[in-house]
Write a protein that binds this DNA or RNA. Sequence first.
DNA 1: TCGAATCGTCTACGCCTGTAATCGAAAGGC
DNA 2: GCCTTTCGATTACAGGCGTAGACGATTCGA
Lengths: 121, 121
Amino acid sequence: MRISDAELEVMEALWASDAPLTATDVAERIGAGRDWSLATVKTMLSRLTAKGAIRFREEGRRYLYSPAIARDSYVGKESRRFVDQLFGGRLSPLVARLAEEDALDEQDIAAIEAILKELKS
Amino acid sequence: MRISDAELEVMEALWASDAPLTATDVAERIGAGRDWSLATVKTMLSRLTAKGAIRFREEGRRYLYSPAIARDSYVGKESRRFVDQLFGGRLSPLVARLAEEDALDEQDIAAIEAILKELKS
DNA sequence: TCGAATCGTCTACGCCTGTAATCGAAAGGC
DNA sequence: GCCTTTCGATTACAGGCGTAGACGATTCGA
């Protein structure tokens, strides 16, 4: 299943904390950027549960939520989907495009080179 | 404005042909993959027009559609959005992730290296 | 003990998306 | 001159999304 932009925000909060979180916890961690009411966060948690992206354990009257899918695996799938959709499955045209827009700094470039060098060994 | 997955398919047809296309033309070019009725294609064309992503010129009773935005610029914006959303704006973690999934072949790697080398000169 | 706070669930609602049928106008064929 | 085809426009409709209020149950504070 796809995870929507708003839902992703909730996932990030859960992924960022290794302990399970209550709805209120999640709301607090998101707090800043998105000005959501607690009700909204709860809706997201329900929908994510329905999608199987998170799960919860009951603790008294509250639920403790934790991710049911790993960030790496989700991000990997989305990345593939993205390069497939816009770049025919190849990463190099993406790199070219971002390079052309000066979206890569020295540090990022060096990091990429290191990864590739490692790959070839 | 965002362009949806289905709408993108129509954009690709228009981007791929330098001449303007009629609705029927577009339908033919898409034909294969997506099993759409002509009506569906027309809906996409209307919506894309409303979004300002394409425009048309009347030719008799038909419309001749052409892109109003360049593929490069659209793709660039989406790419940024993507790396911002999932990788904090850095490309290297994306490369790392795809590398880890063996989604890069020799050819792609070489192409990326060439781009980076060029960048540094 | 009794009202206030809090919990998860249910309901809401407008916009977007995917997919298409219908419709009135025009054009083309015969 | 008509019937058929074809055009774009309008309407449809279910499911997803963003955002949240209302509700019944429970618990906590005084």
